[in-house]
Amino acid sequence: MNLLEVRNISLAFGGVKALNDVSFTIRKGEIFSLIGPNGAGKTSMLNCISGLYRPTEGSISFEGADITGMKPFKRAGLGIARAFQNIELFSHLTVLDNLMLGRHTKMKTGVLAGGFYWGRAQKEEIEHRKAVERVIDFLEIEDIRNIPVGRLAYGLKKRVEVGRALAMEPKLLLLDEPMAGMNAEEKEDMARFILDIHEEMGSTVVLIEHDMGVVMDLSDSVAVLDFGKLIGKGTPQEVQENPDVIKAYLGEEQFI
């Protein structure tokens, strides 16, 4: 069953086309990787899916419903969560508060009840705190839960960023270069977390990653973008053997 369908998406900034007639589908429960050289339009594609950008053409549907014109906060409410390439955590808030923000959509208390913090509001907070503690245990960040995020090391920030998205219990998790700037050991940990997220939490994962080894090891299917165009899609094996993909990554041999 298809969880997300991207149909003929184009995105232009002035005269520059960031995406050009891109179409693909993501099946429920798979790890789907979006790869391509720098400036290929990968992050722009994620921005279209999460609602930060409104595509100039085409449509996006999630669980069969058209979400093309939907506001980002409503998409998040449907179960689309996002972790950024450049860390976008709330640096003044603690790790725990950042993760609790991920629960915002699940907390149904209104302003008045929440403001007075009694009855249902209190019970709900305890319930959601438990869910957040599960994410904290899962990502092995128990000892930093009360530290403001701004004071953390880069690798831990990346982990918290993924954790915040996980706290939303997403149906679709968008990870934009979660391993960028990490050393080999941190990459290994993150790869393990992504597999665990997929297996234990049942989330469908969309992954943008430059490390081909990671992409080939983790992905069920791969789509390749180059200059805003989709130049290949299929299993990791199929994509690896695709001549257009090889050309985009390695360039054509020049015979003079």
Partner: peptide, 16 residues
Amino acid sequence: RAVAQDRETAALMSVN
């Protein structure tokens, strides 16, 4: 507090 720091990211956390 989240909106005060980063409106776009807050929206992606489903904050209206």
